[in-house]
Amino acid sequence: MTQSILIGAIILTVCAFYGLITHRHMIRLVISLNILDSAVLLVIVLLGYREDAVAPIVRAADVEYVLGLPHALSLTAIVISACTTALMLGYAVRVYRLRGTVYLDQLRRWRG
């Protein structure tokens, strides 16, 4: 089970990099970055997983719990990724207001 999720995360990374290189639409780039983010979070949470362990909320002494530290780190990472997504989209909208396009190809010829 762990192996299958690891392989899935690697395929998601490949997908995200393919999208980042081939697309020139800003919103599509942000979509690819979101997919990359989720792949990294899957690997981080997988680090703390143990077979036959339960969620890290302490109820009794003789139960085995999964490691809670990767959960705390990925919790902050999720909220920060929402902020950075909003910031990137805000810049995209701003560029559209100023230049009338969201394609990076047409932004190359920047005058002045």
Partner: peptide
Amino acid sequence: LQAPDVAMTQAVVGAGLTTAFFVIA
């Protein structure tokens, strides 16, 4: 993967807020 805190946050942020951000943009 037994991570209920992360699952709740990911459901609210990813499926709710981020989709709203994208739709607005």
